[in-house]
Amino acid sequence: MKAFHAEISKLLSLPGIWLALLIGALAPAVIAALDAIAEKEAIIAGVSTRLPEMGYSGLGLGVQGVIILGVLAVSSEYRTESSEGAGGQQISTSLMVVSSRLQLFLAKAGAVSVISILLCILAVILIVPTTRYILGDYAPLLEWTRLAGAVCYWTFTALLAFGLTLLTKQGMIPLTMLMINSSLVSFSVLLAKVTKLAFYLPDRAGMEMFMFTKNSASTEVTGSLFDSYHTPFTGGLIMFAWVAVLLGIAAIVFHRRDVAA
């Protein structure tokens, strides 16, 4: 528990984290607003098929905040960029304070998860008035089950960023991969056009927890971001499996690796 508190305070003392939190809180609302503006006419005319997605699209595509959070939580320990160039890596200090690597790993993952959950709740609180302001009475009510799915999606995404950064020991590759994949030109969407296996990629499967409109796989799969392929539960399970496997590998590597390596 002490290690967990230490990790929380370590994270919150990084200026970059505050930027991540700001992005995490605002990006979903902004994206939801842009999406709602674009769909407004169709919704009022009653011809929009995307009404149930309003608001959720912000949660699905506004995860950049938790991606940065997960990446920074690890890369701050390994950073070497400093104008004074002392090159001291905080990880050595961290491992002296909490000597058990597994404990440090769990504390860090726990801190990332808790902050992600809180951040997602904050994002939802901001999305509700935004969509209501733009769509007025047409704004759909947000359902609890789907919101819970979104919270899971955010936490899992943050943990994926965390695990990937721990494996690569630098933030650039995971940040690029995950940021692009959270965008409209996501790799997963592209790959879904080529192979059905892409529906088992973590982000694609995870989004099924809260972003689906066309029910069941019986309808023709167009590869659109908004087609459903799994049930919300299996989608969540698939993403969780990815997270579990990745964190497992990361934990083993972190346990065995020399700090200096």
Binding site: L19, L61, Q64, G171, M172, L175
Partner: peptide, 25 residues
């Protein structure tokens, strides 16, 4: 910016998140 990650966040955020969403606006 002198720092890799902030520069990366800003540029990727613009090119991949902000720009595609605000296309047309």
């Amino acid at each position: 910016l002198r720092r890799t990650l902030p520069a990366l966040v800003i540029l990727l955020g613009y090119y991949f998140i902000i720009s595609p969403w605000s296309r047309g606006l």
